[in-house]
């Protein structure tokens, strides 16, 4: 089975601040890292490869520095890595990101399965996987918590929904997003790191794609626009209720209802 894993580079911490005057995101000098949820997608893929053979490749869209996470994937045992990078892709929202990734995937050797993380720690939308699948016109299933068996033309999985779990068969080619119950990610190996030190990361740019119209990518290709970012209202609640127990009790009851903790 040949697998392609989508990985994204994210800020090393979510403890970002915003410069109140300029509105610029301050990342507090913490270096970037691989989206932690993508480690599960990698682990799952590497286990499938061990069991069923085939290959595991990774693709990431991002600036040239994102090469670092592809190198990291090599150290975990990934066979091939692709970095989709071009100024034309800057400022992409989910739609444009998924479109660019889908365009790039079409230029790669065919795979049976594309595996994504459940979500990222920065944009945090969980939407990229399903949108890639739509752009490629292949079936997808989100929140896969277990893979049971791989057959020549389909895969058997369990999908974890809020209120139920569904066992299903999905025809190849398919896209899955996996949860953290799929298996604890392995650490990058020093030995593999040495071995893959000089292994190249394949670059894909706009001119390698079928659709080379820059208007379909980046900010112009993005239906959503971030108008503004601002810090959340972190005013700490710090309230004391004293007085008669009746007063305290009704303060509590009212607050529980007001906050929809108790529904009525």
């Amino acid at each position: 089975m040949n697998i392609l894993v989508c990985i994204k580079q994210v800020p090393g911490t979510t403890e970002v601040n915003i410069d109140e005057e300029t509105g610029v995101l301050l990342r507090n000098g913490v270096p970037s890292k691989m989206n932690p949820y993508d480690l599960y997608a990698l682990e799952c893929s590497l286990r499938l490869k061990k069991h069923y053979g085939g290959s595991v490749a990774v693709i990431s869209m991002g600036p040239p520095q994102a090469e670092a996470i592809i190198k990291e994937a090599y150290m975990m045992g990934v066979d091939e890595g692709y970095l989709l990078t071009d100024m034309a892709f800057a400022g992409s929202d989910v739609y444009a990101t998924a479109y660019a990734l889908a365009q790039a995937i079409k230029t790669l050797p065919d795979v049976d399965c594309i595996i994504c993380g459940m979500m990222t720690t920065d944009g945090d939308t969980a939407q990229v996987g399903p949108e890639i699948a739509e752009h490629l016109n292949i079936p997808h299933a989100s929140y896969i918590k277990e893979i049971h068996e791989v057959h020549s033309d389909h895969i058997e999985v369990t999908m974890d929904m809020d209120k139920y779990a569904a066992e299903m068969k999905i025809k190849f080619p398919a896209l899955l997003t996996v949860t953290s119950t799929i298996g604890t990610p392995r650490l990058p190996s020093y030995i593999l790191g040495k071995k893959t030190e000089d292994k190249i990361v394949n670059r894909i740019t706009l001119k390698d794609l079928n659709d080379q119209d820059p208007d379909h990518y980046g900010i112009t290709g993005s239906p959503t626009q971030v108008i503004d970012i601002f810090p959340p209202d972190h005013t700490q609640i710090s309230t004391t209720w004293e007085g008669t127990s009746k007063e305290i009790a009704s303060n509590l009851a009212d607050d529980l209802i007001h906050r929809k903790i108790v529904m009525r």
Binding site: P11, T14, E15, V16, N17, I18, L25, T121, D122, G123, D124, P223, T224, Q225, V226, I227, D228, I229, F230, P231, P232
Partner: peptide
């Protein structure tokens, strides 16, 4: 909210 709730984003979809 994004970044695990550490920032808020105001988003529009003006042309679609």
């Amino acid at each position: 909210p994004a970044f695990g709730g550490n920032i808020m984003a105001h988003i529009r979809t003006p042309n679609h």
